[in-house]
Every structure is written in C-alpha cells, then in structure tokens.
Design a protein around this nucleic acid. Structure first.
Length: 399
RNA sequence: GGUGAGUUAGUCAAGUGGCCAACGACGGCAGACUGUAAAUCUGCUCCCUAUGGGUUCGGUGGUUCGAAUCCACCACUCACCA
C-alpha cells in the first residue's frame, strides 16, 4: 500500500525535494491514520482552468486518496502584485474587484476534480493584510537582494536591463510566508515555481515553526503548439469548460510527439499501459490517430461524461472525416439581399470585409459545400451554410 | 537630480524628407499534400463594395509643396553617474 502510494505520488513529477519527508507522512497516515496538509497556490488572474492547471489538480487528487488535506490557496493578495515568474516584463496589477470575481469562478471549477470534503479553500489576503508594516518589514529581513537576484528570471531581466519592480521581490517572500501561516507539510507547484516553493522552506525555517515542507514539482504542460506552455494569453489551451466538440478537436490537433506528453501528464492510464501503446505504435499494430482519439475521448469523458464524449467523437468524424456540416452551428438572419463579404463578417466568421475578400480570392469560402469564386456575389432570399476554411461555419437566413 | 540611448503593425525588428501601408523574421489565416498530426511547398496578413479612398510609425504642436524620418514640449523605458 505504501509502495503503491509512493509510486502514484511520484508519477510524472519533475522533481521532489525531501522525498523522505513525504514518505514519513505517508507512513504516519497508514499506521495511525494521521492526516497531513498539502498546499497549492493559484493566482486568480486567469479564472478559467485549462488542462495545464489540471496536471496539478490531479496530483492533489492523488494526495487526497492517501490522507492529505488540501490547502487550496487563492493568492488574492499576491495576485495584486503579479507573480514575476517567467515574465520578461513587470506585470500589470489587478484591482481588488477583478481578483474577487476571478476567485469566485475558480472555486466553481476546481471541485470537478478535487474532493471538497478534504479541501480547504483559503485566501492569503486574510493573513497578509494582518501583517502590517512591521510584520512586512521583518519578513523582508529574512532574505537579501543578492540571493533574490540569483533567481533565473530576475537575473536575466537585471542583466538585460529590463525593469524589475521592488514589489516583485515581495512576491516570493509572501508566498513563502503563506507556508508559515498554513504550516504546510508539502507544497506542490510547477517547475517554474521552484524558487517560490523553496522560499516556503526558507520561511518556515526562519520563523521556526518546527517543520520544513517537502516540495513536489510537476512539469509544465505544453500548449497546443507543443512549444510554449499552455496558457490562456497565448491562446494555445484546452479549457475544462470548453465544449466537448472543441475539446475533442483540440486534442486531435496536437502533434504526435506532444500526444505522448499529454498521455504522461493527463491520462489516468497506468505507465505500463502507456508503454504498451507506445510499443504498438512503434511496431505498426496501432495507428497513431487511433491512439490520439483514445486520449481525446478519455479527456472529454473526464469533464463531460461518457455519452457527451462519444457524441463529440461522432461529430468529429462526421465533420472532418466525411467533411459534412456540423450539427449545431450558429444561425444568423438578415433582411434583404446581402453581399457575400458582408455576410461573412456579420456571421462572425471573418473579422473584416477585407479579410473576407482575401479568403474568397484564396478559395477558402464555401456556400453549401460549393466553393465561391465571385467576390461580388449577392445572396438573395434563402438559407445558406457559409464556411471559411475547415473549421468556421455559420448558417445564414436571408429574409 | 545629471548625462546619454530609445519608443515603428500581434511580437521581434529595418527604415533617418518624396519611390512608405512601411524590408525581413516569427506568429496567425488560407490553399496543396495528409491522419483537421508533424514536416514540406504556395499565397495572404490595417480598414473601406476598392485598378480607387481612408487612417497608421509613443502623445501634442510646429517646420515643409511633402514627415515614421527635421524641430519643440510632454509621457514612458533603459544605461551610466549621483
């Protein structure tokens, strides 16, 4: 049992600091039923969760199976500073209202994966606001600028002459202090959080709370492009609230290479099972497309259930394998004759008439599956299925 | 506070009086080929019913027949010195 728990916990991790500490906690749980705490912090800047976040959430769910109480920390205070991690420029600060609004939708989404009974949602403004100026000051005495500048992203920015705000130095300190206040046993985060996570250990030592948290880091999930990390601002993400059809399509659009990565980090399949699949693809007994479909199915199932996932798969085959029209597409209606380019803009499938004209010129526009070549075309009364490229559809009624 | 350098389209980055809606790269979109994969090749990439017109090069004013380019002031960024 202990062995299995340890394997499960280590699965897919990038790095673990103080694994012995985790082992001790697990032993205590299995022997005496003693619970322990696992902290994970989330910035409520982008309230919509995507699969990148679920890598962490699933790890937390694993911990819950083995006796952990999750401290789900919403960094409402720290979000006002903006985490400097991985940023090449100083981040814009959010207003209090933004933060609260975002935090709210966060809470709604997260319990799709975590068990609410073993999860405590906390906001760090609660205790950080109590710190006061003197508390803040003593916090800053525990660390120094030289060590702060050792941090890779600060170092780069400093050397390249990019601005670093003083408030950004405060960020890691506060994140570390969160661990002091919560007396966390373990903290997990992405590899890009290493510095901040270690700050938790440093702070717990500095404030002498009698323990130092273990740190577990998960690799960063690449986005759909397979290069940059999955993020909303790069628009290369699969959101957990994405429509099943979109979700399915997005998973299938990733490269084969990236597919293995997703299997490793997102699939619930055992590692041995995944190895067998890899073997199958290598010796030609399994088609990579089939393997990718299975992954897409599994992921959609997790967030929408089996029947929705099946429906998404069938829809996908209809539209793309047989190039038929999707079942539900947005419908628009207009009065009187309309020029084709204008119609495309009105139906939100082209951003401007200029773009629409270019698309027509390139043969990307179809009406009822027929390619359009005349850019002056006027649509008279009737119902049309408009299409731009492979994915953009709209139904238009001309009255 | 002083001195110097800089701010160009989604990003990076050329352009230093007319030939500039502005080289190039990346990204993005589309076409071919496919497994809506990758790789590759090709075209497009400010707006406007358009062989034409309009609005762009941090902001505001000015010089000029003509400005992204010259001048003044303002804002912001960076470096060095305090």
């Amino acid at each position: 049992m202990l062995e299995e728990a340890l394997r499960e916990i280590q699965r897919g991790t990038a790095e673990i600091i103080d694994l012995e500490g985790i082992e001790k906690l697990l032993k205590a749980y299995f022997k005496e039923g003693k619970n322990y705490t696992v902290k994970a912090g989330f910035d409520p800047t982008a309230p919509d969760l995507h699969l990148g976040h679920t890598v962490l959430l699933q790890k937390l769910a694993t911990f819950q199976k083995y006796g952990a109480k999750i401290q789900f920390l919403i960094g409402d205070f720290t979000a006002q500073i903006g985490d400097p991690t991985g940023k090449s420029v100083t981040r814009k600060t959010l207003t209090q209202a933004d933060v609260l609004e975002n935090a709210k939708s966060y809470k709604e989404q997260v319990f799709k994966i975590l068990d609410p009974e073993y999860t405590e949602v906390v906001f760090n403004s609660e205790w950080i606001n109590q710190l006061g100026a003197s508390g803040m000051l003593s916090l800053t005495t525990t660390f120094n600028v030289a060590r702060m500048l050792e941090r890779d992203d600060f170092d780069k920015r400093y050397k390249s002459g990019t601005s670093i705000s003083i408030s950004e130095f405060i960020y890691p300190l506060l994140q570390g202090y969160d661990s002091v206040h919560l007396k966390s046993d373990i903290e997990i985060g992405g590899t890009d959080q290493k510095f901040n996570l270690l700050m938790g250990r440093h702070m717990q030592r500095a404030y002498e709370i009698g323990k130092e948290q273990s740190v577990l880091m998960m690799p960063i999930l690449e986005g759909l492009d397979g290069v940059q990390k999955m993020s909303k601002s790069l628009n290369n993400y699969i959101g957990v609230t994405d429509h099943p059809n979109d979700m399915f399509g997005k998973v299938l659009s990733i490269s084969d290479e990236l597919m293995w990565r997703y299997y490793e980090l997102l699939s619930a399949k055992a590692l041995s099972e995944i190895d067998a699949i890899k073997e199958g693809v290598a010796n030609g007994s399994l088609h990579p497309k089939k393997v990718k479909e299975d992954l897409a199915l599994e992921i959609v199932e997790r967030f929408w259930g089996t029947s929705e996932a099946q429906a998404a798969k069938e829809e996908f085959e209809r539209v793309h394998a047989k190039s038929e029209i999707p079942t539900d597409i947005d419908t628009f209606s207009v009065e009187g004759e309309i020029w084709i380019a204008k119609a495309l803009v009105d139906c939100n499938i082209c951003p401007s008439t200029s773009q629409a004209r270019r698309d027509i010129k390139q043969g990307a526009v179809k009406i009822d599956q027929e390619k359009v070549s005349d850019e002056q075309l006027q649509l008279t009364q009737g119902e049309y299925i408009l299409q731009v490229g492979k994915r953009k559809f709209a139904k238009l009624r001309v009255l």
